[in-house]
C-alpha cells in the first residue's frame, strides 16, 4: 500500500511536470486528488490494515496528497506566468508606427512678429493702441506735420475715399489720436500695430496692404539717447544679444531729428556680405524725436514735453528673421507656408 502511494506520487508528479496548460493541470488535479481518484481508492483498502498501521498510512496518504497538490500549485504558477507572457507577447505593437496626429494650427507669421514686439514693449511699460484703418486726412497727414501740398503726401501714393478720407498709410494717426485724448498731459508710451495701405503694385517686395508697428513715448525730459537705448533693447531681444545697432540721420516730416536704425548683419557680423550688400548693416526701422509741430497740434507744450517715435514693418522683420523672400507669401496664405511658423523658438 505504501508502495502504491509512492508510485502514485511519482506518477502524478511526472504528469504535472508534463502538463502544458492550466486545463491539463486541472484534469490532473481532479484525477489524482478527486474523490474518485486513485489515492482515495488506495485508502479504501485501509480497512485491511492493523490499528497501528492505519494512522501511519493515513499520514502517508495525506503527505502524498500535499506533495502532489503543492506540485500542482507550483506548476500552476509557472503555467499562469507563461500564459501572461504569452498574452503580452500577443499584444505587442510596433512602437515605431506613427502616432495619431493632433490637429493644431498656428499664428500667421506677421501676428507672431507683432505679438513678440508687443510683448517686448509691454514689458517696458507700453500699452497697445489700435485705431481705424480708414482715417481722416487730418490724422493721417496734417496732425503729423504733413500739411496739404506737402510733397511727401502725394495723392498718387495713397488710397483716398474722398478728399478728407483715406486708407491710412501708416499707423501714426494713432499717435496723434492718443496724444489728443491725453489732452496734453502726462506720459504716453504706446505701440500701434495694424494694417496700412499704399498705392503700390504687388510684387516680391511691394504690397498695397501691409503691416506696421509704431511706437511713441512722450514725457518731460525724453532724450534722443533714450530712443537709442530703447531701440538697442529692442534689437537685442528681437534679433539676439550679439547684434549691434547704428543710427543714421534721415528725414521724416513728423520727427526732427530723424534717424534710420540698422542692425549689424548676422551673417558677416558687420564685415560686409551679400545679405547686407557689403555694408555690414541691415536697415530695420525709422525713428526720431517727435517734431514740435506734432506735439503742439496734439495739445502738448513742446517747450515742456519731448518724445520719440519709431516705426517698422513686420513683413520686413519676418523676412530678416525667417528668411521669407517674397512679401506676397504673407497674403496668399498657402497652408504649406503658414504651417512653417508653428515652432516655439
Amino acid at each position: 500500500m505504501q508502495e502504491r502511494l509512492k508510485e502514485l506520487q511519482q506518477e502524478a508528479l511526472e504528469a504535472v511536470q508534463k502538463a502544458v496548460d492550466l486545463k491539463e493541470l486541472n484534469e490532473i488535479r481532479v484525477s489524482y486528488l478527486g474523490k474518485k481518484g486513485p489515492i482515495t481508492e488506495v485508502l479504501k483498502g485501509m480497512g485491511k490494515l492493523s490499528a497501528e498501521e492505519r494512522p501511519k498510512m493515513g499520514a502517508l496518504a495525506n503527505e502524498v496528497r500535499d506533495i502532489i497538490s503543492s506540485g500542482i500549485e507550483e506548476k500552476q504558477k509557472v503555467l499562469e506566468e507563461e500564459a501572461v507572457q504569452k498574452k503580452l507577447a500577443s499584444e505587442t505593437i510596433d512602437v515605431t508606427l506613427p502616432g495619431r496626429p493632433v490637429n493644431s494650427g498656428n499664428h500667421h507669421p506677421l501676428t507672431r512678429i507683432i505679438e513678440e514686439i508687443e510683448d517686448l514693449f509691454i514689458g517696458m511699460g507700453y500699452t497697445i493702441a489700435e485705431g481705424p484703418e480708414v482715417e481722416k486726412d487730418y490724422y493721417n497727414f496734417e496732425a503729423l506735420n504733413l500739411p496739404k501740398g506737402h510733397p511727401a503726401r502725394d495723392m498718387q501714393d495713397s488710397f483716398y475715399i474722398s478728399e478728407e478720407i483715406l486708407l491710412r498709410t501708416h499707423t501714426s494717426p494713432m499717435q496723434a489720436r492718443t496724444m489728443e485724448k491725453n489732452e496734453g498731459k502726462g506720459p504716453v508710451r504706446i505701440i500701434c500695430p495694424g494694417k496700412v495701405y499704399r498705392r503700390d503694385n504687388d510684387d516680391a517686395t511691394h504690397s498695397h496692404q501691409f503691416m506696421q508697428i509704431e511706437g511713441l513715448v512722450v514725457d518731460e525730459n525724453i532724450r534722443m539717447s533714450d530712443l537709442k537705448g530703447t531701440l538697442d533693447v529692442f534689437a537685442k531681444k528681437m534679433f539676439g544679444d550679439d547684434r549691434e545697432i547704428r543710427l543714421r540721420p534721415s528725414f521724416f516730416p513728423f520727427t526732427e531729428p530723424s534717424v534710420e536704425m540698422d542692425i549689424s548683419c548676422k551673417i558677416c557680423k558687420g564685415h560686409g556680405c551679400n545679405v547686407c550688400k557689403g555694408t555690414g548693416w541691415i536697415e530695420i526701422l525709422g525713428a526720431g524725436m517727435v517734431h514740435p509741430n506734432v506735439l503742439e497740434m496734439a495739445g502738448y507744450d513742446s517747450t515742456k514735453y519731448t518724445g520719440f517715435a519709431f516705426g517698422m514693418g513686420p513683413e520686413r522683420i519676418a523676412m530678416l528673421k525667417y528668411g521669407v523672400d517674397d512679401i506676397r507669401h504673407y497674403y496668399t496664405n498657402d497652408i504649406r507656408f503658414l504651417k512653417q511658423f508653428s515652432m516655439h523658438e
Binding site: 508687443e118 514693449f121 509691454i122 514689458g123 517696458m124 511699460g125 507700453y126 500699452t127 497697445i128 506720459p187 508710451r189 513715448v217 514725457d219 518731460e220 525730459n221 525724453i222 532724450r223 534722443m224 539717447s225 533714450d226 537709442k228 537705448g229 530703447t230 538697442d232 533693447v233 547704428r246 543710427l247 543714421r248 540721420p249 531729428p257 534717424v259
Partner: peptide, 24 residues
Amino acid sequence: ARLYGYDNLPKTLPVGASTPGKLS
C-alpha cells in the same frame, strides 16, 4: 547731433514715472 555722430550718443532708457504696460 549728426555731425557729433550718432555713434557717440549714449544709450539710455526713459526716466520718470513708469507706466504699467499691459494688454486691454
